[in-house]
Structure formats: C-alpha cells, structure tokens
Design a protein around this nucleic acid. Structure first.
Lengths: 149, 149
DNA sequence: TATGAAAAGACTCCTCA
DNA sequence: TGAGGAGTCTTTTCATA
C-alpha cells in the first residue's frame, strides 16, 4: 500500500462509481485541470492502484442467472496446492479466493442453469481433485458497491 | 433475460474486459461502424444488460487489504427479513447475497485491518440482530473475471 | 505537480441506404 | 439496422511555471 492523497482518493471514488467518466467531468468533480487529472489517473494506473475498468453486466440479461459459491477441500492433503491454476480455464469461475477456515478455497461461479452448475461442479472436482460444498445464491440485494476509498 | 445477438455478445465481452474501450476501438473489434456500435451500446445500457462501468481497484493499494465473507444467521426466526436494508449503510460491505443453505445471507466485506473487521462485525450484529460466521480471505488468485457472455 | 494551449482523435447526431 | 460524414467535444502531449 502506498499512501493516497485526498485528491487521488476523490479520483478513485469517481472512477469506481463511474468507470467511463470523461477526464473533463472528472476534472470538474475533483476541482483540478483536465491535464492534471489525466496525469494522476495515468499514474494510478501505472502504480496498479487502478487494475482496470469493466462493464458491470446483468446476470439474468446475459443468460447466466445462477450464481453460486463453491468451497473447495482437498481430497489428498499431500497434493501440491495449485488449485487456482488447475481451475482457471473454466470461464464459469468469476473469482477464486484462498481462505482461512474449513475450506481451502472459495469460488464464485455464474452459470445458465442447475444443469450447468452440476456440470461445472463435475469439471471442478475432476480438474482439481477436491470435494466441494456449494451455496446457491437466491438473489443479490447488492453487489460491486464501490469500496470506501 | 432477453436473447442476445452474437454482435451484442461480442460488444459485451469487450466492454466487460475493457470498460473504457473507445467506440472507435469497439467498432473495429466487433466489425461494425462506429455509429452502429454506439447505437447498440446505448440499447444494451437502456435495457439494463449493462448496469454500469467501474474501475477495479487494488485492495492493498487503497489501504483495504483485508477481505472476508460473513455468513448471517437470524437470531430471531420470526423477525422480518429486511437485513440487506439494515446493512446497506455500512460502506465496508461490497456485496450482499441471499443464499440457500445454513445461512440466510453472505456478505463480502473489505476493511483495513483485523481491528476494523472486528468493528464491522459488531456493527453488523447490532444493525441486523444476526449471528455471524466469518471466513477470512488470505489471498485472491483471481477476481472479477469477465463472465462468459 | 499544476496549468493552458494545440493537435489528434473520439463522440454524437444526422441523413441516406 | 447499418454506414458515412460534419461539427463539437475529449484526449493527449508539451512547454512553462
């Protein structure tokens, strides 16, 4: 972590809430000239503070209405821990977290149907040689809220 | 869900991977004129397929290096289910999922330190009158991968 | 680091197909 | 729906403080 100035924080807040905000608007909102904001954003990107920009898509609308969390527990405790790499080819997996607790990893997956979930579970068990515990998401009151920079 | 044309899918893939991509680049990548792409993106936004755009920030760099999943279980089973509303004022909560399984909800929180996690757990229990079960994230091999549109 | 200016490039709207 | 073009606004770079 590198310390962030208030101006940089303000820029990050705006970009987290509206990733396509123009530099002109950004400059106005944070009270700086366009070129100064431009320079700061470039630096935040280069330092890796901003990792990228993404459109947020509606799961239902894109035909992937079913989200689930899948906890992974290794079957063979002596096996090397390369689960993320073994699973990254599965596009249904949106996120992979290494966690403290009963499980070793938690995955967040997004699929079209219960059948598709069953299939991806089969693929996960096969590719990573793990046992799984699945928590199905019924609805998402909120998601992707901007972090409190 | 509304059916998506291949062209719209291609546009969504590009915008999910690079939310600040210019219309000019988009047009080139999906093989359409700038104005046609522009029109399609506008429609995808209006239909709610694209819910918005966001900068992806690095948790460590913004001073919030600790992520955790918190499962919520109501203490009083007869209490009305308004937990998301009771918790939305806490900015540390990035996502709230209603789930099937042992717990009623799963939250994803991002905080500065173990002490800050302790404090947000206290606030959650107080605001929602729930018991909590916390899974601390040790590392994040990947996150926010673009969905397989 | 911040600014303003200037050139290059992108957005937006329009008309026509 | 898609293409092309014209005018306006943005982005990007640079010289300067």
């Amino acid at each position: 972590m590198t310390n962030l100035e208030p101006t940089d924080r303000a820029i990050l807040r705006e970009l987290a809430a509206d990733g396509r905000c123009s530099f002109t608007d950004l400059a106005e909102r944070v009270g700086l000239s366009v070129s100064a904001v431009h320079q700061r954003v470039r630096r935040l990107e280069q330092r890796g503070v901003v990792k990228g920009y993404a459109a947020r898509l509606d799961g239902d609308e894109i035909g992937l209405p079913l989200t689930a969390f899948i906890s992974l527990t290794p079957i063979d405790p002596a096996a090397p821990d390369d689960y993320p790499r073994r699973l990254e080819h599965l596009p249904q997996i949106e996120a992979c977290y290494s966690v403290a607790g009963d499980a070793s990893y938690v995955l967040r997956v997004r699929v079209a149907s219960p059948t598709a979930l069953e299939e991806v579970l089969r693929q996960i068990r096969e590719a990573a040689h793990v046992s799984t515990r699945t928590t199905v998401v019924l609805s998402t009151p909120y998601e992707d809220r901007p972090p409190a920079v």
